[in-house]
Design a binder for these strands. Structure first.
Lengths: 219, 219
DNA sequence: AAGGCGCAGTGACAATGTCACATACGAACC
DNA sequence: GGTTCGTATGTGACATTGTCACTGCGCCTT
């Protein structure tokens, strides 16, 4: 078990709960691995030590939308909520990169919840954040314009990742719950204004200020 | 305090936790009352004893969408999640009818969470259901056709409420996150096929089987 | 070099949302 | 009975977004 995993474990199962640590398993998942599927029952509490899990919903016709991501040191709302209420997963989770996770069996989860205020705080803090993400996503999808949403996404990707951005139009569409053609058209507009440069599987943000101004429009 | 409230209180604060009951307050809210606003901090855990709270998001241009409802014996995800994570409310809640609720102060909530497995189960069961509602709502909004969604809504309303349905096109639009004109057009189509009868503020479902068939279409 | 496959471009059309009005209904009041 | 007023609904023109059916391009494999 690596250092980050051990630190997280010690934080969540502090003195007095050491005996629970042994029942927590560490797993290393390759990128692109499905962690849970829609309709699966929840049996374990999952904690991402290091990596990223994308939680998404798929439509029959191939369209999809990303609900939120679970990143380093976070846990998944759906798992938490379904674990005790015994609902099936309403969405699916896929690792985006190689991901290190801790698997806490349901009985251990319940026991820790009963005996550690720190553990409860962690669980609820995660719930709150993920739920907030989700509601903002609804708002965005229902009321937001696609150009604004795309501009925002491009800014986010260019700030946090390698430049130029390595992604396909289809991936952007899946992120936003839109269709590839729509994204292609928007990107062409952006490119026409000189805001971005387009290549196969590559997008270069050339005028971040312009994109940013568009991204700030709320309505 | 009425019987239903007392029963709920006894269930959630059983023998051993009687002392907490006294710190829970009962309130009776009139219909149309705003329970919490977007951006408000969460200070109390709210339990609906009898009534209904609609949780919704409003857009700048007047459009709105209902996320879910909290009904008899249920509690609100947002409140639960924000209470401990100290996030502000990302949506707002409004009573739809006169509503009886229990107000559990944050410290009492934390204490109960630490000492009662029954209380924890209740809280998480509610979380799971409400979160499931929310994800299904996202799916519906992003991938669903408006005619199908409207048919489903009309069936739900006609099954559970007084017939004919007493509602305006605007209310239906707000429920679905759509625009009034869109709903009016769809209803006119339904009426043209003889599926419904329309009046001012009133909709009569005439051919539930036809609506139901439409409502079952998933894609 | 020849396919094959994934990615992107395109035009026509359908569905939904927006805007600016016009109308119609019902309650309250003369 | 009429008048008036506020709310609910109808409507056409248009903008935006999604769908469909293709085309073409670039890169990899064989």
């Amino acid at each position: 078990m690596n250092r980050a995993a051990r630190a997280l474990l010690e934080r969540l199962f502090p003195t007095g709960l050491e005996h629970l640590r042994a029942r927590v398993e560490e797993v290393r998942l390759p990128a692109g691995q499905t962690v849970f599927r829609r309709g699966d029952p929840c049996r374990n509490y999952l904690l991402v030590v290091q990596g990223s899990v994308r939680v998404q919903v798929l439509a029959a016709n191939g369209r999809e939308i990303t609900l939120y991501r679970v990143r380093d040191g976070q846990s998944c709302v759906i798992t938490t909520a379904c674990l005790i209420s015994v609902e099936a997963y309403p969405a699916e989770g896929v690792t985006e990169v190689e991901t290190d996770a801790l698997v806490v069996p349901q009985p251990v989860f319940e026991q820790a919840l009963g005996s550690s205020a720190e553990f409860r705080r962690f669980v609820f803090a995660n719930q709150g954040q993920r739920l907030g993400d989700l509601i903002r996503r609804v708002e965005d999808v229902v009321f937001g314009r696609i150009d604004v949403r795309l501009a925002r996404l491009l800014m986010t990707l260019s700030e946090q990742g390698v430049r130029p951005i390595a992604t396909t139009h289809q991936q952007l569409a899946s992120e936003l719950g839109s269709a590839r053609e729509v994204i292609s058209r928007q990107l062409k507009q952006f490119a026409g204004r000189g805001w971005v440069g387009l290549g196969r599987g590559v997008i270069e943000v050339k005028m971040p200020a312009a994109l940013d101004e568009l991204a700030r429009q709320s309505d």
